[in-house]
Nucleic acid binder design. Structure first.
Lengths: 147, 147
DNA sequence: GCTAAACTCTACCAAAACAGTAGACAAACT
DNA sequence: AGTTTGTCTACTGTTTTGGTAGAGTTTAGC
């Protein structure tokens, strides 16, 4: 029932990239430092995002990562899908077959509905939304606790 | 993100008890046979349901288990809560503290909302609903494939 | 009382998933 | 040539999951 750290890191990484979206490629090293993850582990999280086409990379010196689409065109569902591998609460939601009790089971419909409702939230939010929320939150903190 | 087998077995066990609700205490042995679980493992699943007050037991010969409340007064949320231990998609939904990034993080609201939507489904369905669905499904199978 | 039927409790265990670490390699800028 | 940066693969310790097993306790019925 819990999201794994992979899923949670994935959305944080993507938000980091979105925040620095118009500054050219972002170094793995910098993301690692900001998000407090080792570079090696970060690569394991960021690579699937590249493979799945959510971000692109530039190799060599002065390389780095950047979003493959505009922030408004990437939903949290897209990201979490990559981080978690599957988005369904129960295996049978993805493939009806494989459950030998499918003819008797009354729960598949329930798992499907619960999954659908959960995903509504993730589909309704884009990286653009999250950047706005982030800036809003940062602004409020600055107001409350001015230097 | 996946429900564990404990959660899924728990709702099946409770449905089994609900179906035989007016026949006196149900033997662990019988549930085990119908649900294809070993009696020992079944006890480990059923005992928390008793401890949490969803079912009651009678010890000794001719003992067994029965629902502690009417089927219409037990929701899937009640059951899954026991089976899974926690109902939130991310730890921070339960306890806001403990996350050192809570001041910067924009995702807690998202996890809360997604969890809430998912739980809507589980809260809206009672064991009575599931018994009805079960009988309906059984009736349709019988029509389709008469002996 | 004795016995059999049933629930109770605790300990243990193997496999899988999770959360990383580590090191060698490849590409590209300067 | 050398440095910076991304790429790939292998390995590993810990936790969770999904059980098994066995000894003990309570009660009905003879």
């Amino acid at each position: 029932m819990k999201l794994s750290t992979r899923g949670r890191y994935s959305v944080r990484i993507m938000l980091d990239l979105a925040i620095h979206d118009n500054e050219g490629p972002v170094f793995l090293k910098d993301i690692a430092q900001r998000q407090q993850i080792s570079e090696k582990y970060l690569w394991q999280l960021i690579n699937p995002l590249k493979v799945m086409g959510l971000i692109k990379s530039v190799r060599g010196a002065n390389g780095g990562y950047s979003l493959a689409r505009r922030p408004s065109e990437i939903t949290l569902r897209d990201i979490i899908q990559v981080g978690e591998g599957s988005l369904s609460l129960v295996e049978c939601v993805d493939n009806a077959l494989g459950c030998d009790r499918s003819d008797l089971c009354v729960y598949r419909d329930v798992w499907m509905e619960a999954t659908r409702k959960m995903l509504e939230t993730f589909e309704s939010l884009t990286l653009e939304d999250m950047v706005l929320r982030h800036h809003e939150k940062f602004r409020k903190i600055a107001e409350k606790d001015p230097l």
